[in-house]
Nucleic acid binder design. Sequence first.
DNA 1: AAGTTCCATGTTGACGTCAACATTGACGCC
DNA 2: GGCGTCAATGTTGACGTCAACATGGAACTT
Lengths: 348, 348
Amino acid sequence: MSQQLSRGRRGPSMADVAREAGVSGQTVSRVANGRDNVDQETRQRVLDAMRRVGYRPNSAARALRNGRFRSIGVIMSTLSTFGGSRTLEAIASAAVARGYSITLRPVVHPTQREVTGAFSRLDEQAVDGVLVLIHERELDESEIELPAGLPVVVIDANPRSDYPSVDTDQAEGAVLATEHLLALGHETVWHIAGPPHSYAAERRRKSWQATLARHGRPIPDALTGDWSAESGYRLAQRLCDDPAVTAVFTANDQMALGLLRALHERGRSVPGDVSVVGFDDMAESRFFWPPLTTVRQSFGEVGRRAVEALLDEITTGTADATAVRVPTELVLRSSTTPPRSQAGKSDS
Amino acid sequence: MSQQLSRGRRGPSMADVAREAGVSGQTVSRVANGRDNVDQETRQRVLDAMRRVGYRPNSAARALRNGRFRSIGVIMSTLSTFGGSRTLEAIASAAVARGYSITLRPVVHPTQREVTGAFSRLDEQAVDGVLVLIHERELDESEIELPAGLPVVVIDANPRSDYPSVDTDQAEGAVLATEHLLALGHETVWHIAGPPHSYAAERRRKSWQATLARHGRPIPDALTGDWSAESGYRLAQRLCDDPAVTAVFTANDQMALGLLRALHERGRSVPGDVSVVGFDDMAESRFFWPPLTTVRQSFGEVGRRAVEALLDEITTGTADATAVRVPTELVLRSSTTPPRSQAGKSDS
DNA sequence: AAGTTCCATGTTGACGTCAACATTGACGCC
DNA sequence: GGCGTCAATGTTGACGTCAACATGGAACTT
């Protein structure tokens, strides 16, 4: 069962419509672009002709003529993470709603060379702007050289970035988590951090640390994971047997899951012996055992705001290097409770 | 802090390179396309000139000239699901490796109108081919009218589709899960199915059913969820209190997670009282409590094979409506065990 | 009535690339 | 030496669209 494909076929062009409607190509163009300087009756005739011949505009020709494509490029290193795919989905719907299409450019190892290459390719393809979604921070070390004049919005950026950026308010989220545990009466809060090359992880870690400092609490060393449940499980081994550990803030829900499992295995109850707070609020977290108290971040909002900012930049032609921070929210479930013996502890 | 963007700027074109190198534009074109009928020395001169002026080919012009864009379109309804994002990631890397870029086209409600529209838009954008990743099956009811001659590969398709398709071998996976539980000595296997509008869900359900029939076992009614952990949890209520239920095959890992939680809440032990098998093998499943026995499917492989098939179709110009089936694998962990009282049971 | 304005429409050319054809000149062969 | 061959390079035009300018005529002004 094999069918011949008529390759390289082209659809009808404006010229065909023009012939059919008995007008010039330019008039067709005007109708297609919704200009108002066309007689009502002529417009209708053209519209009918379009329908009859099945005309559809050719974006390649438009792009060639106009220099741009009504398309935005997305450079991503984290496509299949929970947050990444959520954000991408929001970006895609927002862009499509505004009549832009999405050109995806994955980057496996976000070295400066690779990212520069990705930019070049997108520029060649005449995208109108680029969204960068790279959680790795190696990039700020050496400046990325960007095609001049291509609008860019960075998601999850180094705060000192020169580009407009949109991100979850990581610091606020970490404060929420840490202070929640402190408020329950825990002496201090341990932390399983994300990988050090991640902006988000670093900001959560610093904010956790600062919060403890602000409250005058001892600051345990942070354990460093890589976002995976596996790493949470592994690192948890060091926490499980220390009775001083009564509260842990984990930099994402997946690592929290690993931690929960390790705790179960050692027979330590959650939240009885140890309280746990995650970060992200993935759909599954409600169904962890116990249901996880966590910091919800709105990836959808981040994606939408980023598209908005980029489209602004594209249409106005000016870039304001402002940083949009999307707020977080603490979602209380069943993995946190006051510490078992609170006697003898005093809030300094 | 606001910088003026030089909008609509264009990079140097072949003409600029030609002038710089003192040759004709055509020679530059030949060098750029790697033709061999150019003198070695001339080629070098052109290459140098390209570097000097910073030439980069203009894909819009190429697309206009050649009719196609070296880009493949992806129509997706399930972008942010575990499988969807995994598959997309694989598609993106495979395509980029072959020098194609990805144009993403999300479809929120995969009605036939919306999908047809998505096709049109992609065709306008001169994509070379389209990958369709829509789990909903409403689509086969009324034929989708596709731009003639645009190569298409469908992922997770209705088997009777006229297009080449690539998919996980759902039936095999369900057999693996069901027979594993039967082999452990369970009398029969309950099933929490995915939503009826999903091809994959239906095939898993039918295959589970057929397997029970083949072994002459009683066939319980399937419970129908929607893939979410939430639905697994909700449906589990009906299973928890029935002591006859000793083995459950869940159509994905997330619903299995919901089931596990419900079972914990009712104080039923897994796998002691109830054995559970999932489907997908998401990264987290290893860390569920207990670690979940599940059927692993390789989304990466599906994505890669799909790109391969599409690129074949694009380059050869012929479409073989063959169906590639990617095998699954049973991953044994700790959520299954023989039933408590096996006395009196015999394998017919 | 002659001039002015304005609107609907047409004509031309350029965006960057590349296939098809044309040109040039070096080399080999009888 | 004349002729064919072939390799390297150049010239022309077309892909589809649309800005800029040109045209032609109706309506309006004085």
